Amino acid sequence: MSIQHFRVALIPFFAAFCLPVFAHPETLVKVKDAEDQLGARVGYIELDLNSGKILESFRPEERFPMMSTFKVLLCGAVLSRVDAGQEQLGRRIHYSQNDLVEYSPVTEKHLTDGMTVRELCSAAITMSDNTAANLLLTTIGGPKELTAFLHNMGDHVTRLDRWEPELNEAIPNDERDTTMPAAMATTLRKLLTGELLTLASRQQLIDWMEADKVAGPLLRSALPAGWFIADKSGAGERGSRGIIAALGPDGKPSRIVVIYTTGSQATMDERNRQIAEIGASLIKHW
């Protein structure tokens, strides 16, 4: 067993022997301040990774656009098919120029040779490549099948209805392509620590998230040296922004954090800054 596999296998073990965790309302004060600064709703939840206990939450059962955070769930569904012998990570998928959609920095470079399922998941999570996500959605049967996968996990809230990039439209009061912070946090925890996926697939999923290259201005910008984070960000229309993450000190994750916002007129930089400040408060009061 590799060191990384050992780390993920012992996530519940280490967490069980940690000192009790206590909620700190100071972080919620910052979440509410972010709402004021952005002029928009902000949803927040913080779960203990081992027990699933909610440590703090704000608007945990209000719907927010998922945006690209759905790509972690998508690759979880792909990995479940791999575990069941219905898919192979090494299978190569070929596609054409007509398949390319807006923001496809990886797939646009491989029109000639195609990409493997493993490479597509890596591109979808680490670079948020939209064509990679659409190609992977095709392998599982489309958005409705991802929703069905989530329902089978016990998540009857999260739903995907459309493809990239239309799913980022974020129309107010439109339930399409949305989740709730509580539902997303619980589902992410199941994917990373539950028995739904094999140990190898859980490790692969967290490795992809740990290698995320496009979430630097968010929670990662607030992390002290030595902290662990595996995350996936999302951005959408109407001032929408979000991030889902597993993080913790001492090089291992111990909490799940989900943050979503929508309806702001603020710039992307300002949305990023507010999420980073929430992260800084979380870490300060850990």
Score class of each variant (00 low, 15 high):
84 A>E: 12
249 P>Q: 09
112 T>D: 15
242 G>S: 07
131 T>H: 04
184 M>L: 07
108 E>P: 07
107 T>F: 02
19 L>E: 07
33 D>C: 14
211 A>M: 10
145 E>P: 09
48 D>C: 07
65 P>S: 05
121 C>D: 00
129 D>Y: 00
2 S>Y: 12
273 R>D: 10
21 V>P: 05
112 T>H: 14
243 I>M: 06
139 T>L: 15
277 E>Q: 11
135 L>P: 00
280 A>Q: 15
163 W>F: 14
186 T>A: 14
268 M>D: 06
228 F>G: 05
222 A>E: 13
49 L>A: 09
256 I>Q: 01
19 L>R: 08
150 L>S: 06
273 R>A: 10
255 R>N: 02
191 L>Y: 07
126 T>G: 11
157 V>G: 10
267 T>E: 11
277 E>T: 13
3 I>W: 07
89 L>H: 05
167 L>S: 06
94 H>I: 15
146 L>Y: 06
73 L>E: 03
207 D>V: 11
208 W>R: 01
73 L>I: 15
137 L>N: 04
162 R>A: 06
258 V>Y: 01
3 I>A: 08
126 T>R: 07
8 V>Q: 13
3 I>S: 14
70 F>T: 05
90 G>M: 13
40 A>G: 13
118 R>Q: 13
88 Q>T: 13
274 Q>P: 05
92 R>I: 14
59 R>T: 02
98 N>R: 15
83 D>F: 02
107 T>Y: 01
196 L>V: 14
29 V>L: 09
84 A>S: 12
168 N>V: 06
176 R>C: 09
214 V>Q: 07
119 E>S: 09
266 A>P: 04
231 D>Q: 05
118 R>C: 13
177 D>L: 01
21 V>R: 05
221 S>K: 13
248 G>S: 03
232 K>N: 01
31 V>W: 02
12 P>D: 07
14 F>I: 13
31 V>N: 02
195 E>D: 14
249 P>G: 05
232 K>I: 00
10 L>R: 05
153 M>C: 15
208 W>E: 03
283 I>R: 06
220 R>A: 04
159 R>K: 11
57 S>R: 11
9 A>S: 15
147 T>W: 04
182 A>D: 10
22 F>E: 15
2 S>D: 07
224 P>W: 03
53 K>N: 14
183 A>F: 08
188 L>V: 12
236 G>M: 02
35 E>M: 04
12 P>G: 12
59 R>P: 00
79 L>A: 03
61 E>Y: 14
220 R>W: 02
152 N>I: 10
274 Q>Y: 10
67 M>C: 13
105 P>D: 04
54 I>F: 11
221 S>I: 10
175 E>L: 14
115 M>C: 07
258 V>F: 02
229 I>F: 04
230 A>L: 05
170 A>E: 06
192 L>A: 06
268 M>G: 07
67 M>P: 00
49 L>F: 15
173 N>C: 13
22 F>V: 06
13 F>H: 06
95 Y>T: 03
53 K>Q: 12
21 V>L: 07
17 F>E: 04
9 A>L: 09
182 A>L: 15
73 L>H: 07
